[in-house]
Design a binder for these strands. Sequence first.
DNA 1: ACCTGAACACCGTTCAAGT
DNA 2: ACCTGAACACCGTTCAAGT
Lengths: 191, 191
Amino acid sequence: MPAPERTTPDAIVAAGRAIVEDRGLDALTMSAVAERVGVRAPSLYKRVGDRDALVRGIAESTVDDLGARMHAAVEQVETGAGDCPRDVLITLGHELREFAHEYPNGFRLIFGPLSAAARPDLAALWRATRPMLDAATELAGEVHALEAARTLTAWANGFLIMELADAFRLGGDLDDAYKWGLTSIVDAMSR
Amino acid sequence: MPAPERTTPDAIVAAGRAIVEDRGLDALTMSAVAERVGVRAPSLYKRVGDRDALVRGIAESTVDDLGARMHAAVEQVETGAGDCPRDVLITLGHELREFAHEYPNGFRLIFGPLSAAARPDLAALWRATRPMLDAATELAGEVHALEAARTLTAWANGFLIMELADAFRLGGDLDDAYKWGLTSIVDAMSR
DNA sequence: ACCTGAACACCGTTCAAGT
DNA sequence: ACCTGAACACCGTTCAAGT
């Protein structure tokens, strides 16, 4: 006798993301997730392998979300007036920071010290930051495009992870600091 | 009737660090730590507040360790031949990477997505990277020293966190990529 | 075919009882 | 004064029994 499905993998991941964002990774218990999707904890194991797989799904879903935002941002700026690669990179840099501020816990999860089973597949990260690589290629040339894109993403992710970890406390305005670093690196890429 | 102390806070933190480094944060159970210091789990609560406090202590101990390495590296290079600030910064950058490779799990813990109670006090991080700030001041001048030092540490930490998270998989040699980024940023700071 | 209560193992933490 | 076994609450996970 078939029984109706009362939830889906996507709904479970979405509920998990909401919990992680609202109350942190420690609050991500299987029963908290189950309650949010209207089911009992054991039922989750029909949809996601286990808690580690759920954490991985949450991180990957966050990366996908970031990718959509990045692609949307490029199209936005390319239909606009000045679509030189420099402007694209700077727009993408600010878009990344906005995302990190909107989903701090999800963002930190992406590079977090997770067990092997919970670590996200970061192939999606390269889809997400592909627009950066494209613009970097235009700006730095084929030869150094990969290094340049890596330098920019490493700096941006490092800045944001440090900012979210509250590692910047020697005064000064963080908005300005981010802008200063972003333009410095993009300009250095032009050489 | 007094009883002898069978362990110390430092020994507990050291044991915790070893476990985190060897088997990851998930393996850091109170009884695993207790066993390593030759005591039963409940006794740990006389020395460290709770597991979160222990995690915080482990992260802070790792930061202190990093600081000692950084200071030692500057003295090494300053007694040597060419101690221009550019060389100091590049040496420090490579020293940081060596440390991250030696203690990957501890390093990732420093900026990891920890609960508020487990998050390390990153004041020690500024002591640790103080040599970088000093050299950056010489190189970039007083006005932009802080921004420059932030840019460099953000890039280096971001690169290493991404490297340790296995986020760089588009071919290319990572040693070269790190060197390229390091010299690019240091040279940009000179302007 | 999926859902669930019950059960199990494990972990963090507390505390009364030992020495 | 510190150490410990016992106990408690909580969590991840499994599974037989329900529908």
